[in-house]
Design a protein around this nucleic acid. Structure first.
Lengths: 212, 212
DNA sequence: GGCTTTCGCTACGAGCCGTAGCGTAACTGG
DNA sequence: CCAGTTACGCTACGGCTCGTAGCGAAAGCC
């Protein structure tokens, strides 16, 4: 819904006039991902994207405010397609699964070069940060919340009664999981293999169940 | 040593001729940090930095290959000045301390906008990644190694006999700590306050001591 | 058929990049 | 002290990207 074509604000079509080509949206986002793979974030230009998409540069500017917004949407589509949380039967296995899924996304050259770049930009652009949050971050966080519910249903995690405290804990877990995977992949530049995912999941689950 | 003025490779001065002005190095790096604060990463231009530093643009290009390298050095100097690990008497307190120190660095507008930007660039530039590693990452990792040694001396952590396994564990801890702080600060865009640092440290220490 | 909006196209000023070329300044070795 | 070497400030330049404007044509709604 949110990620796919939908341009900047709320898609203020008046209901009259020539409608925007949905195929152009698709072509532009595809071209953006291709350009990210070939050129990387810094050398990607909107003129090049337009040419790849077979679309006039002006068309691109009518839908997206700039490079940042375009790339967020292009990358968010990948998160939509590849993030899910099948029940693997236990908390540690669920953590391992989500870690490997997220890592697989980050190993892609498109996301590798783009994700941290737009996050860096978002530190000076609240609107962009909000766009990243709704298009990418909230989807990831939903997996954390789902995983916790399951773990609580299994009796692996205690149920926190105070909703504020529960929210803080969920945020903490989210930052630890996502942060560790991002740091491992982009800063340490080491692959997230099975052994690492297992060690990390064991560490996290151990920490979560130690206090209880 | 590494971070301060020293330009790109090994500073190939022949021993003759006019020496490079050390003051110019300082002025350029200061100007770079100022420009980062005022303009942010994306709007920072080398021409502007040169003007601020009172230096010709050509001088700047003689010492640094480009924006990426310059900013890495400018930011690395901050890490040199503000990262240390006083013995706080216990593992959890040590973790809390390093978390708050790193968070304080990341709250600065210079580092906030610059650090992830150069990391994003480094995904397509091995030389840049190496520069980041030696100038920033290795310094952080040294704190982790020191903290572990102390904890082992106190008997809070087991001594791993296999050196390869010990290295893997240290890397894991490092990615978890640094990653969580970065993610909290830049992606979630929430402050690392005392409560968060305490919760995180408790989670990590709990996980590290759970298996033993 | 008239109204509205999007489309592709071309063209443009503006800004930044990275380099070249020059004359001058600073330091070293003979 | 002088010749050699290197860094410096300054100016100028071609090349690229940006983001916008203006046009006629196309594609829908009433």
């Amino acid at each position: 819904m949110t990620s796919a074509g939908t341009p900047a604000h709320g898609t203020r079509h008046g209901r009259t006039g020539r409608p925007r080509s949905a195929e152009a949206d698709r072509a532009i986002l595809d071209a953006t991902r291709d350009a990210l793979v070939e050129l990387g974030w810094s050398k990607l230009t909107l003129g090049d994207v337009a040419a790849r998409a077979g679309v006039a540069k002006t068309t691109l500017y009518r839908r997206w405010a700039g490079k940042n917004e375009l790339v967020v949407d292009a990358v968010a589509a990948l998160f939509d397609e590849h993030l899910e949380l099948p029940d693997r039967g236990g908390l540690q296995a669920d953590v391992e699964g989500v870690v490997r899924q997220f890592a697989a996304l980050l190993e892609r050259p498109e996301t590798k070069t783009a994700l941290m770049a737009v996050v860096a930009e978002s530190t000076r652009d609240p609107a962009l940060r909000e766009r990243i949050r709704t298009a990418i971050v909230d989807r990831q966080k939903a997996l954390v919340l789902l995983g916790r519910e399951r773990a609580q249903a299994r009796g692996e995690l205690p149920v926190e009664t105070d909703p504020a405290a529960a929210a803080r804990t969920a945020d903490l877990i989210f930052d630890v999981i996502a942060g560790a995977v991002v740091h491992r992949t982009l800063v340490s530049a080491e692959p997230v293999d099975g052994a690492w995912a297992r060690s990390f999941a064991a560490l996290l689950v151990g920490g979560l169940t130690a206090g209880a």
